[in-house]
């Protein structure tokens, strides 16, 4: 059963979300909160999240999928949201889930920046059992630099030349101007948040289980190896999986709404954690 609702975040703003409850199990014991990427990446992978929610639901999990303030069906404008507001929204969504279900096994799964947000929000949540990071953004500044490239491409289409390079765009932001990336208004608030984001420096809970999934069509990203080493040296209970990248958050040239292998491997890991804990 799927039930869409609105709930209020910590600022009283309306947040949109959908509960996926397993048939005949109004109160599932196992639950997952899904954290989506932001901006156009979110729109491109929306169907992957819907299908993952339905997949887990069929396996007996209660799933909650929500839109951050300024995204999707939630209230507000994109430019009024930051990484901080998204983290707070995630904490609110977690609390909403606790109130909605009677979970004895609960965690978060996030993709790209949604993975990073999931990790940061999990610091605030004491009763989480697991955090799954699908291709998380480790370094916010590098992520933003990649995003800025879309502005250069857009300038080439509209003006036939690059009027503002990446450095100049950054300067515009720092001067308080708004820049446009893929149709979204970007402010210095988000930029500064992303600039500070470095997952390697973030704390992790040592009693919680983590899964890092790298989605790649080539070799491993050195940044992930470094991140993994940092977590392991910190005695973090983390597993690592490398999955073939079968869907794309950068464009929709190829459509893959059902990455079965990713769904199955994540589910298998979740079940192993659940069974290990209960044995």
């Amino acid at each position: 059963m799927e039930k869409s609702i609105y709930f209020a975040n910590s600022s009283g703003e309306r947040i949109y979300g959908t509960f996926f409850s397993p048939t005949g199990m109004e109160k599932a014991k196992k639950g997952v909160l899904l954290c989506q990427p932001i901006a156009e990446e979110k729109i491109r992978v929306k169907r992957v999240f819907i299908n993952f929610a339905r997949f887990l639901c069929k396996k007996g999990y209660g799933v909650f999928l929500f839109d951050y303030f300024g995204e999707g069906e939630s209230a507000g404008n994109f430019e009024d949201a930051s990484l901080d507001t998204r983290t707070l929204d995630t904490v609110c969504a977690l609390n909403y889930c606790y109130g909605y279900g009677q979970f004895n096994f609960f965690g978060i799964v996030g993709l790209r920046l949604g993975g990073s947000i999931a990790l940061i929000a999990s610091e605030e949540a004491k009763s989480l059992d697991f955090v799954v990071l699908w291709q998380p953004v480790i370094n916010g500044y590098e992520y933003f630099q990649e995003w800025l490239k879309t502005s250069l491409a857009a300038q080439l289409v509209v003006y036939k030349e690059i009027k503002f390079n990446r450095k100049q765009l950054e300067e515009q932001l720092q001067c308080g101007n708004v820049i446009e990336l893929e149709g979204y208004s970007i402010t210095d608030l988000l930029f500064q948040n992303l600039r500070k984001l470095n997952l390697i420096e973030h704390k992790v809970c040592k009693s919680r289980k983590y899964l890092l999934v790298e989605l790649t069509s080539q070799g491993s990203d050195l940044l992930y190896i470094k991140y993994l080493e940092a977590l392991k040296s910190n005695n973090c209970l983390i597993d690592y999986l490398k999955e073939k990248k079968t869907f794309d958050w950068n464009n929709m040239r190829f459509y893959q709404p059902l990455p079965d292998s990713l769904f199955n491997s994540t589910f298998t890991w979740l079940e192993s954690i659940y069974n290990g804990r209960n044995s």
């Binding site: 729109i43 929306k46 169907r47 995204e71 893929e182 149709g183 929709m252």
Partner: peptide, 13 residues
């Protein structure tokens, strides 16, 4: 097309 009811960059919203 394949993008949902919010449209690209939430244009529809």
């Amino acid at each position: 097309g394949l993008k949902d009811r919010s449209g690209p960059h939430r244009l529809y919203i």
